[in-house]
């Protein structure tokens, strides 16, 4: 479903702030793969997701989604294939617009915007039903401004919006990191249900090793702009946190895994 071949990205090249954030990353995801991504701060996890989403062009390498080469497509054109949830709860929704308006925007992801109505009555009923799944009481607040919602509510809504039109690829960048533990668990729970229901091909960054082990059928760990570990199948099912740390140490020849990763 996703095929990333040897992509590289250096920020601020030729300046004192030069930073090689991706140093040749290749990754192939099969249909329905749910991959968790871990790694220390600055390892390049977000940069990888942003490269796939097309926030800026990569320096070299290719990216294709469902067989379509998207390497040169701008962000808004790639949106046709991709649903996203960001780390910052403010980022994924339009605060000054209503809940239903936000959902209506998401329902038209990848379609040409025309002079047809921005939202129809049938859609409203549909959205109300969908919001019930979240169990946050949002179904009674369709016309509330999203800016009035809590961070957790906004994040759950963004998740729902990302999956509203079945995406070929779902990108989640620490989407529960800014939430309190209880809300985080709830949103993660909703994530699991939504991903399972539609068999979404998913990349989920997390700083929580346990979550990374429990969720998904494959786990990758990034280190200094590369994929240092890639664990799937039976291997992944049997994985423990201790295993993971040990294998990370072997793979990178460093023991900074403990302090860097456990912090999250």
């Amino acid at each position: 479903m996703l095929d990333v071949q040897n992509i590289r990205k250096t920020f601020n090249p030729g300046t004192v702030n030069e930073k090689a954030a991706l140093r040749g990353v290749s990754l192939t995801l099969n249909d329905g793969d749910f991959v968790t991504v871990i790694g220390g701060n600055g390892a390049g996890k977000s940069t990888l997701l942003n490269a796939v989403a097309g926030v800026w062009p990569v320096d070299s390498g290719t990216i294709s989604i469902g067989g379509v080469d998207v390497t040169r497509l701008p962000e808004h054109k790639r949106a046709k294939y991709i649903g996203r949830v960001f780390q910052d709860p403010m980022m994924g929704t339009a605060a000054t617009m209503q809940i239903e308006e936000n959902m209506a925007l998401a329902a038209r992801r990848g379609q040409a915007r025309t002079l047809r109505p921005g939202i129809t009555r049938d859609e409203r009923d549909h959205y109300r039903e969908m919001l019930k799944i979240l169990d946050l009481g949002l179904e009674d607040r369709l016309t509330s401004k999203v800016g009035l919602l809590s961070g957790g509510q906004r994040q759950a809504l963004t998740l729902l919006m990302a999956a509203l039109r079945k995406p070929d690829l779902l990108l989640l960048d620490e989407h529960t990191a800014a939430l309190d533990p209880k809300t985080a668990a709830k949103v993660l729970d909703a994530t699991e249900r939504i991903v399972q229901k539609d068999h979404l091909t998913t990349l989920m960054i997390t700083h929580n090793m346990k979550d990374a082990i429990v969720h998904g059928n494959r786990l990758i760990m990034m280190y200094e702009g590369r994929i240092a570990l890639d664990i799937s199948g039976e291997d992944k099912k049997k994985l423990t946190v201790e295993d993971l740390l040990a294998r990370f140490g072997q793979a990178t020849g460093s023991d900074e895994a403990d302090d860097k990763l456990l912090l999250g």
Binding site: A53, E75, H76, K77, A79, K80, I82, R84, F86, M90, M91, G92, T93, A94, A95, T96, M97, E101, A104, L105, A106, R108, R109, G110, Q111, R113, G118, I119, M161
Partner: peptide, 18 residues
């Protein structure tokens, strides 16, 4: 609506294909 979304949150707008 895509104009309003662009003014409200351009990141979100682009992520929704606007």
């Amino acid at each position: 609506a895509s104009l309003r979304a662009t003014g409200s949150n351009p990141n979100m707008a682009r992520a929704q294909g606007i």
